[in-house]
Amino acid sequence: MTTTLSKPLQAAPSQGRRTRASSETLGAWTLMAPYLVLLLIAGVVPIGYAIKTSLERSPTPLDPSSGFGGLDSFRTVVTDFRFVDTFLNIGAVLVVWLPIMMLGIVGLALLIHASPGRFGASMRFVYFIPGALAGIANFVLWVYLLNPSQSPIEWIWGVLGVDTVKQAVATPGHLPFVLAAMMFFQGVGSWIVVVNGGLNSIADETLEAAAIDGANAWQLAWHIKLPIIRPWIGYAALMNLAYGFQLFLEPQLLDQVSSNALPDQWTPTQLGYAFAFSNYNFPAAAAMSLILLVITLGIGMLIVFRSGLFGDEER
């Protein structure tokens, strides 16, 4: 596999170069080869194949052929009665979750940075622990928290008048808040570590100079630290925004533990999953995933080219 890939690539640079440069090129492509093979298998080929699949016609019992269907599958997806709703649902989650998340990340990172020594470091570690319980583990933990009959936060459910898991998640308007809480619990710690890394890069002299000028802890945080870590804050916001678009596990499994009281396809990823695994409409599933790919690709490019965090190493 390695050789088939590197051969055409080696031939690419112009032939008039000096031998040193061409041996450097040859060496570079040889060292890149394993990664490029994986990039092809797990990135380029599936995207290409998804584009091809999305342009096919989905076979039906009446017409089992699956020839070229043009943009039909995209039409199927976009006009699906659930399509717009799934994005509105994501929007509702993001409206609740992103501000809390950003406030939590920045606020706690600043508090930790203002607490040098053992206390700050141990708090940072404590906030990080739930991040280790990522994905399904965090979900099972939340099943325990969401079940009023055995939850340690039973009093909250008591105040809300909630008696069962089903009521906790399926009462209209609850779901965005429940998801926001789950994602905050799981995600805030690792982002605190990242933003804290940004804060640690501020030179001591800068902070000392401001302190000599009479700035108190609050002014120091607001006027000095926050502006300096802006790139990290932007990075965190955009990464979490992109993360919102891939929501799947939590709504899918919350539905499972609440006797199917939730809509089965609540997020775009769930809808794409249903096209593939419930309807076996692969062209529509491919089209849906391409739509999500374009959105997250846009956010990804924004992060890489606009956040100011990447590319510094490149002089």
Partner: peptide
């Protein structure tokens, strides 16, 4: 390098259905 950075910051779930088809 740019392709690596962009794929790094994208949620990897977006490619799962295409990977399934492949």
């Amino acid at each position: 390098l740019m392709i690596t950075l962009i794929t790094m910051v994208m949620p990897n779930t977006v490619l799962v259905i295409p990977l399934f088809l492949e």
